[in-house]
């Protein structure tokens, strides 16, 4: 299919983008990496009158060290996350998640801001910001505000973004010396959206986990924090108890890959593997595909 014709303007900086957007109306869209948006346009899924191209705004790209936090600009590519030394040292979950997203061509264009704004429930980065307790930095013409990741994802493709408001950055606390991250997912082919996936963050000490944060993706209409399982792991009740808690934490919906029972089952398998990984019993991260 061919997309319907639409208006296009390129923004020089953030305030220019917001001004263009206001003039184009609320149905116009910001264009970042285009990896989700352009597919939708070509399928004529929504009527979009115009695009405001933010992809060349330099101030939105890159990772900065803010002392106790990292600031990841909204236009930071998935491929940047994969390669950035600051990310690897202080927020390794992003570096672990990035190679699991799609294929190289998509990773060199797709951005973290686009991924969070799009809020695909099967996407890796929304689950990362949730497990890492990050803040999303938003800007509108009226000014800036910050929303905790836990309050940002509201439902299927739905976020706390208001009309004419954009993501400018993600700020994520740096890990302490004992803190470990694991990102695990299952997809039938490498590069596909996962059938099930998790992000686990915890301090590892005395052969057990503390201060556990556990989020799942592809498990419902939005990425979810598995609070029951987190509590069970925090209080050292064991992985089995945590898996049992997933029964209430998760309410997966069927998709083409499987029904809710399968998704729940896989969530438990992944949790076993991720915990074993953090405790040093097996490899920590990665996609499990049918790769030969």
């Amino acid at each position: 299919m061919k997309g319907a014709s639409l208006a296009y303007a390129r923004a020089n900086d953030v305030s220019h983008a917001l001004e263009l957007w206001r003039r184009a109306g609320p149905d116009a869209r910001l264009l970042a990496g285009g990896q989700s948006l352009l597919a939708g346009i070509n399928l004529r899924l929504n009527e979009i009158p115009g695009l405001i191209d933010i992809s060349r705004i330099g101030e939105l790209r890159g990772v900065a060290d803010l002392g106790d936090r990292l600031r990841i600009g909204a236009l930071t590519r998935h491929a940047d996350l994969q390669a950035d030394p600051l990310v690897a040292a202080h927020a390794p979950a992003f570096a672990q998640a990035a190679p699991l997203i799609a294929h190289a061509a998509i990773r060199t264009r797709g951005t973290i801001g686009g991924s969070l704004a799009y809020a695909d429930p099967a996407a890796e980065l929304p689950a990362c910001v949730l497990a890492l307790d990050a803040e999303i930095v938003l800007r509108a013409e009226a000014g800036e505000r910050r929303v905790a990741a836990e309050n940002f994802f509201l439902g299927l493709f739905e976020t706390a973004l208001r009309p004419f408001e954009m993501i400018v950055a993600v700020e994520v606390p740096k890990i302490g010396p004992n803190r470990r991250h694991a990102v695990l997912e299952l997809a039938r082919r490498s590069g596909d959206y996962a059938m099930a996936g998790l992000v686990l963050a915890a301090d590892v000490a005395g052969g057990r986990l503390h201060d556990v944060r556990l989020s799942y993706f592809s498990m419902g209409p939005a990425p979810v924090l598995a609070r029951g399982a987190m509590a069970a792991l925090d209080s050292d009740e064991g992985v089995e108890a945590a898996c049992a808690a997933l029964g209430t934490d998760l309410d997966p919906v069927a998709d083409l890959q499987g029904g809710p029972e399968m998704k729940r089952h896989l969530a438990g398998v992944l949790l076993h593997r991720a915990v074993a990984g953090l405790l040093g019993h097996s490899p920590v991260s990665g996609g499990n595909h049918g790769r030969g």
Binding site: R188, R189, S190, G191, D192, Y193, H289, G290, R291, G292
Partner: peptide
């Protein structure tokens, strides 16, 4: 995305 063709990475 929904109709999965075999891809190189998974082929033996």
């Amino acid at each position: 995305a929904d109709y999965l063709v075999p891809m190189a990475a998974e082929m033996p």
